[in-house]
Design a protein around this nucleic acid. Structure first.
Length: 139
DNA sequence: GAGGTGATTGTTCGA
DNA sequence: TCGAACAATCACCTC
């Protein structure tokens, strides 16, 4: 939309020296390394294509910032019809992601229950069949 | 050597 | 409901 991301928006182009005051993004990922990555939005699906095109046109330009800018402008110039295939792809990935995240959440719940059960076992100390394998969601 | 940074938009999730 | 975080990419820079 407005594109007024309070995050980076208009940063110094190549001012890598300008240290961003945003916290380490990766820090959160470290929290949940097993968490499935978010699906790419239609724009990112488009970028996958656009990067190759841009690379072909500008083999010397490896600056991701330039690709991002060019991709953003191109994306805005696209019509809904042109965006449609990318949106469809993104939608597909999103559906897949929902499945994955559900399995992930179930696994989390299972682990939480296991931990809770462990605490209980420590107190009661009985019943340890070990048959509580998480269903790897095969269906 | 390892890891952060930049630029873009869309989506998701938490407060 | 709003806003921040995060998704990909990769050369370059800092520690």
């Amino acid at each position: 939309m407005t594109g007024a991301r309070s995050k980076a928006s208009t940063r110094g182009n190549d001012s890598k020296l300008a240290v961003k005051n945003k916290p380490a993004k990766k820090a959160k990922s470290v929290k949940d390394p097993n968490k499935p990555k978010r699906p790419p939005s239609a724009f990112f699906v488009f970028m996958e294509d656009f990067r190759q095109e841009y690379k072909a046109k500008h083999p010397n330009n490896k600056a991701v910032s330039a690709v991002g800018k060019a991709g953003g402008e191109r994306w805005k110039s696209l019509t809904d019809e042109e965006k449609a295939p990318y949106i469809a792809k993104a939608d597909k990935r999103k559906a897949d992601y929902e499945k994955t995240i559900q399995a992930y959440n179930r696994k989390l719940a299972g682990e939480a229950a296991e931990e809770s059960d462990k605490s209980k076992s420590e107190v009661e100390d009985d019943d340890e069949d070990g048959s509580g394998e998480e269903d790897e969601d095969d269906d």
